[in-house]
């Protein structure tokens, strides 16, 4: 049942930010470079109250992207039908520009772990991921986007490279891709590959949205750099450079700045969005 509404009305090719309730008044009064917002789906699955009231107001002024963190697309066990129904309800009334989720798992046998956990890239996991995306797109009646993860380790059992895996998922399911440039930089540093090489191998024609975020620098057991994707810092300089490299391949796309922990004052986040808008002008 592909819907009467075959596709989302697209997000603008401008800068957006991840919405945090503490920025509500600032956003209404001084949106600055920010013309669209992304929300985490799970935070708006309550029955009522302030979160939903704020969202109803924000959607008057901003295009909205819904980003899920709890579907567990990469899991072995079937998607939770109750959670999928809640998502359908949210998408139904909010009518967002885009819905996206992660190439990751967070639920197994009904236990939710509240983190985006990694999966090996094999023919078996490819089939699971495609089945799950087929189901989501059938239930929502709309295309979804799939985001590349930030990686700290490899699976010895993987037989696919990540860009080729994502390309194949998109080819089989018709989903679009959300390219997180910070995640590419974090994974490349942690696993010792070239971030530009990843972008070169990535199906940039299927990118519908780009993410940016901050990371912190740690070390592993062998004193090698270990970057942690914590969404709690300014976007790092080499990630801005990688954004320019990416936009040269994709052309202008909606670019989102994520800042989920130690959330800064609005002026700081808006400054990050302004820098993303500047990068888009050069694209």
């Amino acid at each position: 049942m592909q819907s009467e509404k075959p596709d989302f009305s697209p997000l603008p090719n401008t800068a957006g930010v991840g919405y945090k309730p503490q920025h509500f008044n600032d956003l209404i009064e001084h949106p600055g470079a920010v013309s669209w917002l992304e929300i985490h789906a799970e935070n708006y699955m309550g029955d009522g109250g302030r979160p939903l009231a704020q969202l109803r107001q924000l959607r008057q002024d901003f295009a909205i992207s819904v980003h899920g963190v709890g579907l567990s697309i990469g899991g072995e066990t079937p998607l939770d039908p109750a959670h999928l129904a809640r998502l359908k309800h949210l998408i139904g009334w909010l009518q967002p520009a885009i819905f996206s989720e992660h190439l990751a798992w967070s639920t197994h046998d009904g236990q939710f772990l509240n983190d985006l956990l990694p999966l090996p890239y094999t023919d078996t996991t490819l089939a699971h991921v495609c089945d799950h995306i087929d189901l989501v797109q059938e239930v929502l009646g709309q295309q979804m986007l799939l985001e590349n993860p930030s990686s700290y380790l490899n699976f010895a059992s993987s037989t696919w490279e990540e860009p080729a895996f994502l390309d194949e998922v998109a080819r089989r399911t018709g989903c679009g891709l959300l390219l997180d440039v910070n995640n590419v930089f974090v994974s490349a540093t942690n696993l010792g590959f070239s971030p530009e090489g990843y972008i070169d191998a990535y199906p940039t024609d299927k990118v519908r949205e780009i993410h940016l975020g901050g990371h912190e620098v740690d070390k592993d057991d062998h004193d090698a750099p270990l970057l942690i994707d914590n969404h709690a810092a300014l976007v790092a300089d080499p990630v801005w450079t990688l954004l320019d490299y990416t936009l040269a391949a994709t052309g202008p796309k909606p670019v989102l700045v994520e800042w989920d922990n130690d959330v800064p004052d609005w002026v700081v986040l808006e400054g990050e969005a302004a820098q993303a808008a500047l990068a888009l002008e050069g694209a």
């Binding site: 509240n114 380790l153 490899n154 942690n190 010792g192 592993d220």
Partner: peptide, 24 residues
């Protein structure tokens, strides 16, 4: 079966996920 980019065992790298789950 978890490794870093040099095929060493994952070690502390797995702790990132442990910390994320428990801390969050």
């Amino acid at each position: 079966g978890l490794q870093d980019g040099m095929a060493h065992t994952a070690g502390r790298r797995f702790d990132v996920y442990r910390n994320n789950v428990v801390h969050s």
